[in-house]
Amino acid sequence: MNYFRKYYYGDYGDKEAPTGGDTGKAAANEWPLWEVFIRSKQGLDHKHVGSLHAADAQMAVENARDVYTRRMEGVSIWVVESKYIHASNPDEAESFYEPAEDKVYRHPTFYDLPDEVNHM
């Protein structure tokens, strides 16, 4: 039996335990993970900047303010609990993305633009 669990700084319990056994009790008490999106002053869209732990949405926004906007990175914050994000499966990358590789005609480069049209 391993009665002692070694804790390291930043060790939240939902990550792999560094040494020894994890009873799973710690993980149940931990705060959920949130993904953070920040819109910068010049930017038009929110960009993913990282993740953090928080007990609820309000705390997540405040934590994001403290962790990710210390150097004036943003003017708007979105947070979403990580469990609500659905991702494509890396194993399916071949069928997902490769079929597009040989279809250059999908790029809008096969016609001439009039000179008067800017910002295209």
Partner: peptide
Amino acid sequence: TGHGPVLEQDIAITN
């Protein structure tokens, strides 16, 4: 600083 209960609050109190 470096001893906060969790990383996020460590940074908050340091700020």
